[in-house]
Design a binder for these strands. Structure first.
Lengths: 97, 97
DNA sequence: TAAATAGTTCAAAAGGTTTTGAACTATCTT
DNA sequence: AAGATAGTTCAAAACCTTTTGAACTATTTA
């Protein structure tokens, strides 16, 4: 009996690595991390110098991967890093492999 | 003094996540890991059911990312997982971010 | 209420990755 | 030496991701 990752877990793992495999998304995560409190998408987008359309696309991917969590307050959308996803899928990746 | 990723390190980080963001390459790594000794590319390729051209492409990417190490012995190329790259860029990613 | 701000959606264009088959080099077997 | 096996390279095709601008919704400010 071979220990193997099932299809569902593997798909999520790939979605996470894809989300992380992009310079803009890494900058976004770096920015959110260093502010260390929920921050509006617009502020992050301005900090990393991207259009709001492009920002919307990147935030959607990060959220879909479970790497960030978003809360909409009135006009703005505040994002936070989801450390537990990082723990499970990134930090503990080699054990899961 | 803030610990930040410089451009060169960031590029390597992205190359690593790109290499990991693919189901075939994850299967390749899983196979190499579970044999737990250097294994020929042909054997891995057969195990994960890909053409030799496609295998050659994927092994090249994994090696370029530093995730595997290859040694050519006569006709065959034997691959091994480079655990130190995983440690630095995957396991310790959140600290580096 | 009009204008400004925050963000989303859509489709097209631009750009990047992966697969394919054919042709190739090198080594091994008969 | 001829044929089989291991792997590489190349260019084209197929496929996938990202950026762009315009049009949109919802909230806030004047």
């Amino acid at each position: 009996m071979k220990t193997e990752i099932n299809l569902g877990q593997d798909a999520q793992q790939i979605q996470i690595f894809k989300a992380l495999a992009d310079p803009i998304r890494l900058q976004i995560l770096q920015y959110i991390k260093q502010t260390d409190h929920p921050v509006a998408c617009g502020e992050v987008g301005r900090a990393v110098n991207i259009s709001k359309t492009s920002g919307s696309y990147h935030f959607k991917l990060l959220e879909a991967a479970g790497l960030i969590t978003a809360e909409k307050i009135a006009r703005e959308k505040y994002v936070t890093i989801n450390w537990s996803t990082f723990e499970t899928y990134v930090t503990n990746f080699t054990q899961r492999l």
